[in-house]
Design a protein around this nucleic acid. Sequence first.
DNA 1: ACGCTAATCTATAGCGCTGTAAATGTCAAT
DNA 2: ATTGACATTTACAGCGCTATAGATTAGCGT
Lengths: 339, 339
Amino acid sequence: MASGRSAGRVRLQDVADLAGVSMKTVSNVVHDYEHVSATMRDKVQAAIDELGYRPNLTARRLATGKTGMIALAIPEIDQFYFAEMARHIGEEAGRRGYRILVEQTLNDVEAERAVIRDREEGLVDGVIFQPARIDTLEIARLRPGTPLVLLGEAARPVNTDHVMIDNTRAARDGVEMLLRAGRKRIAFLATVRGDITESTHLRLLGYQEALLAAGIGLDATLVLQTDGFALEDGVDAISAAISAGVEFDAVLCRDDLFAMAAVRGLEIAGRRVPADVSVLGWDDTAVARYSTPALSSISPDKRAIAATALSLLEDRMNGYDGTGRHEIVPHSIAERATT
Amino acid sequence: MASGRSAGRVRLQDVADLAGVSMKTVSNVVHDYEHVSATMRDKVQAAIDELGYRPNLTARRLATGKTGMIALAIPEIDQFYFAEMARHIGEEAGRRGYRILVEQTLNDVEAERAVIRDREEGLVDGVIFQPARIDTLEIARLRPGTPLVLLGEAARPVNTDHVMIDNTRAARDGVEMLLRAGRKRIAFLATVRGDITESTHLRLLGYQEALLAAGIGLDATLVLQTDGFALEDGVDAISAAISAGVEFDAVLCRDDLFAMAAVRGLEIAGRRVPADVSVLGWDDTAVARYSTPALSSISPDKRAIAATALSLLEDRMNGYDGTGRHEIVPHSIAERATT
DNA sequence: ACGCTAATCTATAGCGCTGTAAATGTCAAT
DNA sequence: ATTGACATTTACAGCGCTATAGATTAGCGT
């Protein structure tokens, strides 16, 4: 009751003084070091409890050189895919004894450069970074001192670790599934006009490969372009295609948001999903499950991405200094109501 | 080119040695201290550049006692509402010079206790915490040493700062809007059977107040219960009510997820939204905009919540030690296609 | 020149912890 | 008893930075 816990200012030395032992012994007790006698352990623990001692992590870090923290740098935490990745990475990191510092780059080039350049040190032990604006070359050039693992397909310098799914293969799988279901004319939604990202490019490639492999000629009018990344842009693109008389009985979409846009655009035009047109999304985020009708979606194994990224990063943090490793993580297709 | 930057191990002292000055002078240059001569500044900066010096934040923290970090403890980062709050808090924190450490409690009581109890020190300067399981009394009892601001309505001990919207009022506003639109029998979805949370309780209260104020008697069958928090549970509750013959022409929902569930359940039953039944969600998350039809939703001002929480927290971090302040933040109603 | 204030710069003691090396204690086997 | 071989405990030097107090230099009026 009369414990004068003055604002948590109890130091290891205070505990040591009270218990009449050395600082190191107290430290040993705190860390459950095995070679401490039971008597000693009890005596020290009593002192710790009496004073309400709580270790100062900053000091511990300075002494050990480890922070126990990992930065997760992503464009926007409130985008479904990133939110889900953040969750998995957070859980996986927790399991391995790390905490997550979230850094939002907000699609800003300067913010992304800052992540790589890391102007300060000792903040985190490593960084998991999904670039959106910065390109491969620039990442290679700004090569940071802090261990780094990249996510996504937008950039992958040979000298840096990187985790991704096989986008081309996944797109091919999606198209093949649609073909097996009897679809003949499959559209691809959507590449933002004049701003085709690397991942969209890979997906488009797989789309084309699958069609060619099935002996179906490419039709450029089936690659639908949008004016932006918003839902409305996707709806507009679908509507435009329909009123332009483009015929299609399936749409492979670049992400779930555009899949929702496709569904909406088709409904507006009076087409039934999936009776008239199948829609296949990408990322398999929660909205795919929640929207009506529930979206079928190409599903990257997010848990595996998180686990793999953490493993690569842990290697680096433990001193591994070899060349970049590029891990391919499995994907599947979650079939729901739109195919 | 020939800079031997050996793994960022350059210390302040190294720079000082190279420049032939004291550590403190280098420190002054790094911090843009005004009383440093131009010559000196240039000389030191040259040494900094040559060695590629980057300050070690951990050491700085130990010396200053400030970490520049704020913990954000929320149940799950991938729930729409929390993801959006995380974004706003992240942005606002960035503006004020803080970084965000995300701590997922995953609805685990022990994890929530750990947040309050903070077993360690010096990790963050303050904590923003949205409790989900832990109750008011327990928070008051575990009263931590680290500055704390609570979010949400599940708990609010008098001695702790707290930010929320006026839930009762918001529910009343929602019901009044539905009544103005001519709706007569308004249902409330949903309280999980046997697990009514404090915020649901407040919302239910506002729902009842508005009905009574309009001279409409309460009908217990209009308060729909679910078996869980998943979308399907909401759909089931709506379906059950319909097949039990409960008549209603509007549904006020506890959150956007249940609003989507309501829409789906109504569609299954062949009811048109909003022609036959209006649906009003809560939280105004991105899914409200994206789902078809787009959900009308009660909209807490998330940006204001973030800004207010950070302000209260900054006060505390700057030494304010008065009694708990309870800030009410504005809300509005985003009208879309379901009302 | 001299004294005085203000501007600059330096030396060094921490911040609270861990790691290392060394000291001490213990116990079974000579 | 004496000796190893361990188990247990201690002392203290850092980790890299900031802050304080003091030393030095500069500027200026008389």
